[in-house]
């Protein structure tokens, strides 16, 4: 179902996507991408360098956000150009935090999830993909057609990407080949 340029108009909404981001997601992305900067997995280190805590890789957010575009285009190879600025970090809560240093949301999520019998069992469950008890950040993605170029058969999709009500990506634009 490739997008057809004659059926598109500037300002048209291509949909939205909600992405949950857990510490496990960041560890998985670190391994897949080779970006092992400790600010993405080590809470003490992140705070030491002045961050609010562990933050998502900007490239994780950028990479996950574009799925809205590739799903809409029906072809991941149709994304000819993709750019963004990273304006705000996406803090990702610690699922094991129980003390006052944790974000409020983290503490609530942990409390609601109940106390697991043992921390090891909890983390083992997480590696098996049982993410329901894990704390997570939420990234919201919305896309609209920003420009159309009939000569080049391309559409520019402008993404609005927010977390906690703040824009985390700015000028996130994907140039897509359309039929």
């Amino acid at each position: 179902m490739p997008a057809v340029l004659s059926e598109l108009s500037v300002g048209q909404d291509i949909g939205s996507r909600r992405i949950e981001v857990s510490r496990l997601d960041l560890i998985r992305y670190a391994g897949a991408s080779g970006d092992f900067n400790p600010i993405h997995w080590n809470e003490a280190f992140a705070r030491q360098v002045g961050l609010p805590g562990v933050i998502a890789h900007g490239m994780f957010t950028m990479g996950a956000a574009v799925q809205l575009v590739t799903d809409w285009a029906g072809d991941p190879g149709a994304v000819l150009d993709y750019q963004t600025r990273f304006t705000k970090p996406v803090p990702v809560p610690d699922p094991t935090a129980t003390d006052a240093t944790a974000e409020d949301a983290t503490a609530e999520d942990t409390a609601e999830a109940g106390a697991p019998g043992s921390g090891d069992a909890g983390s083992e469950a997480a590696t098996l993909g049982a993410s329901s008890e894990a704390a997570f950040a939420v990234v919201e993605v919305r896309g609209v057609i920003g420009a159309l170029n009939p000569e080049a058969s391309t559409a520019r999709v402008d993404l609005t990407v927010t977390a906690g009500g703040q824009k985390v990506l700015v000028k996130a634009q994907a140039l897509v080949r359309v039929a």
Binding site: I19, Y29, A32, F60, G63, Q67, T70, D75, P76, G77
Partner: peptide
């Protein structure tokens, strides 16, 4: 590696995972 990276960015397109789907495109 493509499958691993696609999973890591929560991508779902079959063209990242299934060779026949990629060839169909």
């Amino acid at each position: 590696k493509i499958r691993e990276f696609a999973t890591a960015v929560k991508a779902t397109s079959a063209a990242h995972f299934d060779v026949e789907a990629a060839r169909a495109l």
